[in-house]
Structure formats: C-alpha cells, structure tokens
C-alpha cells in the first residue's frame, strides 16, 4: 500500500521542485487581507473541484463503474444556482439556490444509478447520456448566456477564505467524511466486494444495487458542489465551459492515485495525490511559462511518465534494482 503511493508522491514533489527551481517565489506565502496568499494556495483552491469530483469517481470506479456526466452535472449546479440568485445580494437566496441545485444533482445521480443498477446498462454508456444531455440542460437553464451574479455569500464557496480557501476546506472535509464512513465501517469493504464481483457479493448477502445507486448519487452531489465552486470562483455560470473535461481530470486523478479501473481496491489518499498532481501540473504550465502551443504535450509527457513508473512491469524492474543495490 505504502509502495503504491510512493511514485505519485515523488511525481508531485518533482513538479513542485521544478517550480521552485524556475520560480523561487512559488513557495513564498504571505498573509493578504487575513488569508494565506501564494502559489501553493492557488494549487489547493483550483484543485478543490477536481479533488471533490475525483472522490466521488473513486467510489464509482471501485464498484467497477465510471461516471462521465460529472462535468455536465457541475455545469447544471452552477447554472441553476446563478439563475436562482439573479441580481439578489441576499445570503438566504444564495443558500436556497445552492440547496435547490444540490437536490437536483442528487436526482441526476439517481437517474445514473437507475440506468446502471436498475436497468443494467454499462456505466460508460449510461452516464454518456447525461454527459451529452446535461450540458444541454445547463444551456437551457441559462438560455445560452453567461449569468453573472453579485452575491457575497455565494462568492465565498469558491473564492472565499478562512485562512485557507473555503473550497479546499470543503473538499478535505468530504475526503475525511468518506474516509471515515468507508474505512471505519464495513461500507468500504462492501463497495470493494461489489467491484470485484457483483454477483458473488449479491449471493453473499451484499445489497449490490443499493450500493451502486448510493455511489452514483454521492458522485453527483460531489460534482454539484464542485460546480458551485467553479461558478462561484468567477461569480458567473458558464454553461458551456464550466467543468468541461473535468470528468477526464477526475478519472486521471483516480488512476494516478493507484485505483484500478477494473474495480475493487481503491485508495483515497492516492486520489488526493492524483488531484494535486493534476492541478500542480496546470499551475506549473502557467508559472514556468510553457508556450501555449506545447502545453498539452508537456502535460501528456508528465502523465505518461507517472503512469509508466506505476505500471507493474516498470515497478518490478525498479524494485529489482533496489534489491540489487542493497
């Protein structure tokens, strides 16, 4: 277990070191208007939505599923909330809007769960439906416009600070909650059992379907909260671009973290590391000034490198060397 997380951790450290070498000021932190301000804080703030979505994705992937609709759900959450808030500056309206959005997201999660657990459609197809249709729904809600709001209570979710960014505090709280409920109770084991063999676990008395429904609803609510962060960060709902491709980032974060797409064992710490690596990578590109034309290649090279060193064969070679040296 420890060994599995070593390489993602080293990759993260390597990326941070690269920043330190190119921009020494990257690690400098200072207090600005009562909160921490610096490059690392940006990584945490902007990585919070990816982390949150990746948490939901981890549990789904552990049940041998996948959810492609999270980006669209995030867009819907932001759109619904901003349309509800409108020109209101009242905190109550903001909270009501967010509550409506999250209830709606839970319903969308139920829909995914229904297609996957109820009808038995393959997860990648079942969630593709909402991935395509969801963005359309978000566009309908906003009527294709970017909805700008000016509401201080809403701004706090994605851009606010209590020393640290509120968004990362929310994500870490959810991480703690998931870690507690799945690792301190039997739930985590049941989820893994469903992922390893749904039929066998059902025969053994595990309610596979209920568990699958639950993880899809949970993932959709996570995506909803992430959508609120993304939209609140710029005080605007952009149905077209909010959470675009974030499902890919989230899946990547889960995979970098060492959870297998084949289901079964999962690692929450791994997902945390994976999400941090992805955001650090993006921030690194901006900080060290990689030319926009080669940004995607740069990112791909780093991702390939991280995945390669984690591959069983590469690991076998590396650990053989270690044995040989010692």
């Amino acid at each position: 277990m420890k060994n599995r997380l070593l390489w993602p951790l080293l990759a993260l450290v390597a990326l941070l070191l690269l920043n330190l070498v190119v921009t020494p000021s990257f690690f400098s932190l200072r207090i600005q208007d009562g909160h921490l301000y610096g490059g690392l804080v940006d990584v945490l703030k902007n990585g919070a939505p990816t982390l949150l979505i990746a948490l939901g994705m981890t549990l789904i992937i552990a049940t041998r599923g996948i959810d492609l609709s999270v980006g669209a759900v995030a867009a819907i959450a932001g759109a619904v909330t901003c349309v509800h808030i409108g020109s209101s500056e009242d905190a109550g309206t903001a909270f009501a809007g967010m509550a409506i959005a999250l209830v709606l997201c839970a319903l969308l999660g139920l829909w995914n769960g229904f297609l996957v657990a109820g009808l038995g459609i393959q997860p990648i197809i079942a969630t593709l439906v909402l991935m395509t249709a969801g963005r359309g729904i978000a566009m309908l809600v906003t009527e294709g416009q970017i909805i700008t709001v000016n509401n201080n209570a809403y701004r706090q979710v994605g851009a606010g600070f209590v020393v640290l960014p509120i968004s990362i505090l929310i994500s870490l709280a959810v991480l703690g909650l998931v870690a507690f409920t799945t690792r301190k109770t039997a739930l985590g084991m049941l989820i893994e059992a469903v992922g390893v063999n749904p039929e066998a676990s059902r025969l053994a008395g595990v309610r596979s379907r209920t568990i699958i429904w639950t993880v899809y609803v949970f993932a959709a609510v996570c995506a909803g909260i992430a959508g609120l962060m993304i939209s609140s960060n710029v005080s605007a709902a952009d149905a077209n671009n909010a959470g675009l491709w974030i499902e890919m980032d989230a899946i990547l974060a889960v995979v970098i973290g060492g959870t297998s797409l084949a289901g079964g064992r999962y690692s929450l710490t791994g997902t945390l590391l994976g999400a941090l690596i992805i955001q650090t990578l993006t921030t690194t590109v901006y900080t060290i000034g990689v030319a926009p034309e080669v940004t995607l290649v740069f990112k791909a090279v780093v991702v390939i490198a991280v995945c390669l060193v984690q591959a069983p064969k590469a690991r076998a070679v590396l650990s053989f060397r270690k044995v040989a040296v010692s």
């Binding site: 921009t23 000021s25 990257f26 610096g38 490059g39 940006d42 902007n46 993304i230 960060n233 710029v234 952009d238 671009n241 909010a242 993006t282 921030t283 901006y286 900080t287 060290i288 000034g289």
Partner: peptide, 13 residues
Amino acid sequence: SGGKQVMEAFLKS
C-alpha cells in the same frame, strides 16, 4: 475561469 487561473499564476511568478 481560464483568465482568473492564469492571472493568479502570473501574479505569483
């Protein structure tokens, strides 16, 4: 969001 994230990084670097 793109503009904000890039500008945040510029302000530090």
